[in-house]
C-alpha cells in the first residue's frame, strides 16, 4: 500500500517534470531541422513558470464549466499517466485501470475541454470543439484496434502485463502484428497530440487551429494547467508507444539502480521518438481538415492488418 503510494508519487513527479522537457525537445529539434535557432530546450518550463505567476481574465460569457475544465483535464491526464509503465514494468496504479481506462480518462479530459470551448460562446471555441471531437471519434477505433492487437498478444488489457510479455519475448517487435499496430498507434499519436499534418501546435491562425482554438480564451494559471496537461498527454502516449512495443531496458522491479537504468533508456527512446515526430512534422504540410479521415482510415486499416496477421501466428 505504502509502496504503491510511493511509486505513484515518484512517477507523478517524473510525469510533471519530463513532460515539458519533451515538448521543449520537439520544438528545439524542429527548429534545428528547419535551420532556425528556435527556443531553448527549457523554454516550456519558463513558459509554465510565467503563466502560473500571472493574473488572468475570465470571459463574462463563461460558466463554472470553464473554471472546472483545467483541473479536470490536468487530473484526468495525470491519473492516466500513473496507469502506464514508465520506468518500471509495473505501473503504479495498474490495479486501478489498464489501457481501456487510459483511453477513457483521456476521453474525459477531452469531453470537458470541448465543453469549455463551447462555453465561451466564441465561434472559434465551437470550431475547435467540433473538430476535436470529430478527429477523436475517428481516431478512437484505430487506437482501440491497435491496442487490442497488443492486448490480445498479451491476453490482457493491463499495461503492466503487456510490457511484461513484450520484454519476455525475443524478436517481439519484429512480428508484423506488433509493427503494424505500432505504425497505427504512431498515426493516432500524431492525431491525438495535435501534430502536423493533423493540427499545428504552433499556429494561431484562426481557421486552421483545433486544440489552440478550444483554449483560446484561457490565460494565466488555467492556461498553464492546460498546457501542462497537454504535454503530459503527449508524454503519456509516447511512453505508452515505447513501453508496449519497444520495452527493452525496462526493469520489472522497483530498485534504485534498475530504475535509473530504465530512466536512461526511457529518455533515449523518447529522444528517438521525438526526433521521428519532428521528421514527420517537418516533411509534411498540414492537411486539409477533411483529408484527416484518410490518415485515420489508414491507421485503422494498419491496425486491422496487424490483427489479421496475428491470425496466422
Amino acid at each position: 500500500m505504502i509502496a504503491v503510494f510511493f511509486t505513484a508519487v515518484v512517477q507523478l513527479l517524473l510525469l510533471l517534470t519530463v513532460a515539458p522537457l519533451v515538448s521543449g525537445l520537439i520544438k528545439t529539434l524542429k527548429a534545428r531541422l528547419q535551420v532556425r535557432r528556435g527556443p531553448g530546450i527549457l523554454q516550456p518550463y519558463h513558459d509554465l513558470h510565467k503563466l502560473f505567476r500571472k493574473g488572468m481574465v475570465l470571459p463574462d460569457t463563461a460558466s463554472w464549466i470553464f473554471t472546472a475544465t483545467p483541473y479536470v483535464v490536468f487530473s484526468a491526464t495525470a491519473i492516466a499517466g500513473l496507469m502506464i509503465p514508465m520506468i518500471s514494468a509495473k505501473a503504479p496504479l495498474g490495479l486501478f485501470g489498464g489501457v481501456l481506462a487510459v483511453v477513457y480518462l483521456l476521453g474525459l479530459g477531452r469531453f470537458f475541454l470541448a465543453l469549455a470551448g463551447l462555453d465561451t460562446g466564441s465561434s472559434f471555441g465551437g470550431l475547435g470543439s467540433s473538430r476535436e471531437m470529430t478527429i477523436a471519434a475517428l481516431a478512437e477505433p484505430a487506437m482501440m484496434l491497435a491496442v487490442f492487437t497488443v492486448a490480445i498478444g498479451a491476453n490482457s488489457t493491463s499495461l503492466s502485463e503487456i510490457a511484461k510479455v513484450a520484454t519476455s519475448t525475443t524478436w517481439h517487435f519484429l512480428a508484423p502484428a506488433q509493427m503494424l499496430a505500432f505504425a497505427a498507434l504512431f498515426l493516432v499519436l500524431i492525431a491525438e497530440t495535435g501534430r502536423i499534418p493533423v493540427d499545428n501546435p504552433a499556429t494561431h491562425l484562426e481557421l486552421t487551429m483545433i486544440h489552440e482554438a478550444m483554449i483560446l480564451e484561457y490565460s494565466g494559471p488555467y492556461l498553464g494547467l492546460l498546457e501542462w496537461g497537454a504535454s503530459i498527454k503527449q508524454l503519456l502516449l509516447m511512453t505508452l508507444l515505447i513501453n508496449a512495443f519497444l520495452p527493452f531496458g525496462l526493469h520489472s522491479k522497483w530498485s534504485l539502480g534498475g530504475l535509473l537504468i530504465s530512466l536512461v533508456y526511457l529518455l533515449l527512446k523518447l529522444l528517438v521518438l521525438a526526433a521521428s515526430i519532428v521528421l514527420v512534422e517537418t516533411t509534411n504540410a498540414k492537411m486539409r481538415f477533411f483529408r484527416v479521415p484518410d490518415l485515420l482510415a489508414m491507421a485503422f486499416t494498419l491496425a486491422a492488418l496487424g490483427l489479421v496477421s496475428t491470425f496466422l501466428f
Binding site: R53, K54, G55, M56, V57, L58, P59, D60, T61, A62, T120, G121, S122, S123, F124, E206, L216, E217, G220, P221
Partner: peptide, 11 residues
Amino acid sequence: ARVATGPAWDC
C-alpha cells in the same frame, strides 16, 4: 494575482 472578468477575447 489579479483575476478579472471581461468580454471574451474571441481573437
